[in-house]
Amino acid sequence: MHPAAWWVWAAGVVALAGRTTSPAVLGLLVAATLVLAGLGRRPGAPPFSGYLVLGLGIVVVRVVFYVLVGLKVPDGQVLVDLPSWQPPWAPGVELLGPVTAAGLARAALGGLALAVMVLAVGAAATASSPSRLLRSVPPALHHLATAAAIAVAVAPSLVRATGAARRARRLRGLPDRGPRALAETALPVLADALDRAVDLAASMDVRGYARRSGRADPRALPALVAALLASAVGLYGLLTGDPAYAVPALAAAVGLGTAGGLLAARGARRTRYRPDPWRGREWLAAGAGAIGLVGAVAGGPPVVLAAVVLAGLGALVPAPLPAEVSA
């Protein structure tokens, strides 16, 4: 799978979760993320359970805050009637009070919607490799993608080096607990990492890193600054609630930013070895996500859109082997 496909899919899930409080739709979306995290897990991915705990935590926080300081509007059946109390040091805040089923459900579903967003992003991160994603960024972002790729590649060996430095402290008879020990353990690791950065830079330089066949276009920077200006205008439109400003300005920002990126990348001559292909299954996953995203923003029916997003999981079905040639 192309690493970007599931991210587009997750964007659809996030957008959809932000536009609905229907338990059925949210339930479907939770199921979809669990399926992706379970079946699409790449080797070496960080555990998905972290995202599950975080999602659950968000729901719990919402419910606890509702019970503690929620606005207890009388709506239907009261489940528990807790004594309410207005602390003198916080005017306008009423602690506890009657807890209604409807209020509890609203709090839980609100939390669930956020949890779905967290799970969707987590599932995408579990399914697609960050280093492969960094390999397929557009050329203008080459420097940063390289820095991030180096960090992703080197971090595990630094974790190992941290362990070695910690064990080495014992050899010298030093304690390995406490803040001072922690800070001093980091020192040799940092020192080695800095030396390594210089070695690595030399190794990249002699292998032709950032070798250009021409210079950057001088129009790139002005275009980028113009993109930032446009995004400032767009944000102003969003905050004042004037779509007449916001939409065209943000569109202009995207356009100018893209143009600036293309100009900046001009003259850089690089190719990609065995790029990840974008084929049918990528179209399926990303397409479903895109429909979910656009549909949610346009206010489409959530149930239908959720069904579309679920259908995107079809990309997980293993590709059939080529049919045997029968005699």
Partner: peptide, 11 residues
């Protein structure tokens, strides 16, 4: 360069 593991860029 000396100690090639320090010059690796990828995984």
């Amino acid at each position: 360069l000396q100690d090639p593991a320090r010059g690796f860029v990828t995984e």
